[in-house]
Design a protein around this nucleic acid. Structure first.
Lengths: 215, 215
DNA sequence: CGGCCTGTTGATGCGACTCAATTCAGGTGG
DNA sequence: CCACCTGAATTGAGTCGCATCAACAGGCCG
């Protein structure tokens, strides 16, 4: 979203703060606009009646969330919760739509953003439904590594964005299973684990496991 | 997509036919445009190396597919296969984008379409990751019923869009499990099953099961 | 120190996938 | 018109992944 439109958008935007654990919006609540995360960390979750939750997406600074609803005029499909103290910019739906009509470039940008999200969700759906936990974890590790370093190579290390419990929910599993799987990876010599930091040892092995399918 | 733009779009579009079982595009293939399904039935699938597949979406006549890639300029995220003989309109990406820049209304429409897709995928992701098969099936049956009749009530019947094997892949399971689950629903008195046709008997029971979470 | 949260590890059980056998319907060709 | 084949659907038995339950260790903070 690096645009000449930035000035106008800046006028639309409303700064909003949220403290750790605060809910930014709730699933099924009528949507009034979307957010741009400036600092902090946000999780978008679906939660089931019995308290279990699945993390659709972890939102990093610079990313937007809740965009989709502005165009579909539907309620928010998930709940957004601040995992750390957060600075956000809120864009009211109506005003944004009005301005959008005047700026093809911005529209184009939003389309691209949504498309990337779709792409991402599609991949997650594939993973969850036809890969086992170890494959999902392996792919995640490789992804994080390329995100941080631009490539994957033995010896490269990176931080996990949040607690392992959250990561587990993101991978569609639970902390116990994640813990065991990480331990297995370690014993296979694929990675080193220490205190929220992961070091890649054997990228090839991870690649293989990421391919792995159920059974 | 009921638009004054229709005329112009009609000029862009190229008619394309596909016969049963034909692939319309392949996952990872560079995208050149998107399709509007006129008649027939299309499945969008992800397939794993060992031959198992997950159906992201069943495309019905009147719907578009492959739109996302036009804006993200990424390769197709899934494979599209004609389940029946199909009539489609193909919209070349570049020409479409050009025209899009001139029509805010069209852009707005595409945004809405993508948003609905996102919403749908989010729901599927939720279902697959934290609901069990019976809950997914129950929700699907209720959905189909409201789609066909606008409401859910005892005695209402509807056709399954395709084979049970495909439905199973769509629900993130396999035909055997689907078969057993349908049999259980029937023995519980929730539905009647005969030859690709389902009759709802006990909507409330289905609602309850659709809520059900894993264990 | 004593609570609380996160993470680890073990034992157990259940859901659902796998494999295999059988039935059934539809389509084809002799 | 029937024998044949193919693909779908059903049913049973066996197995496995992973969620659950439970106990416990370490770190952080009031």
């Amino acid at each position: 979203m690096a645009e000449p439109d930035l000035e106008v958008l800046a006028e639309l935007a409303v700064s909003r703060q949220f403290s750790r654990q605060a809910a930014i919006f709730w699933e099924r609540k009528e949507a009034q606009g979307f957010y741009l995360l400036v600092t902090g960390l946000v999780k978008l979750v679906k939660s089931s009646p019995d308290g279990k939750e699945y993390i659709i997406r972890l939102v990093q600074p610079g990313e937007t969330f809740g965009e989709a609803v502005v165009f579909a005029e539907s309620p928010y499909p998930a709940t957004a919760i601040a995992l750390e103290d957060c600075q956000t910019l809120f864009f009211p739906g109506k005003a944004f739509l009005q301005y959008l009509a005047a700026s093809p470039a911005l529209a184009r940008n939003m389309l691209a953003t949504l498309s990337r999200l779709l792409y991402h969700l599609t991949k997650q759906l594939e993973d969850v439904s036809l890969k086992e936990v170890s494959a999902r974890l392996a792919r995640y590790l490789l992804e994080r590594c390329t995100e941080t370093h631009g490539r994957v190579a033995p010896g490269l290390a990176f931080e996990l964005p949040t607690t392992k419990t959250h990561l587990a929910a993101y991978l569609g599993t639970i902390s116990e299973t994640l813990s065991r799987t990480l331990a297995r990876f370690k014993s296979l010599g694929a990675i080193e684990v220490e205190k929220g930091k992961i070091t890649i040892n054997d990228p090839q092995l991870l690649q293989n496991m990421a391919q792995g399918s159920k059974s």
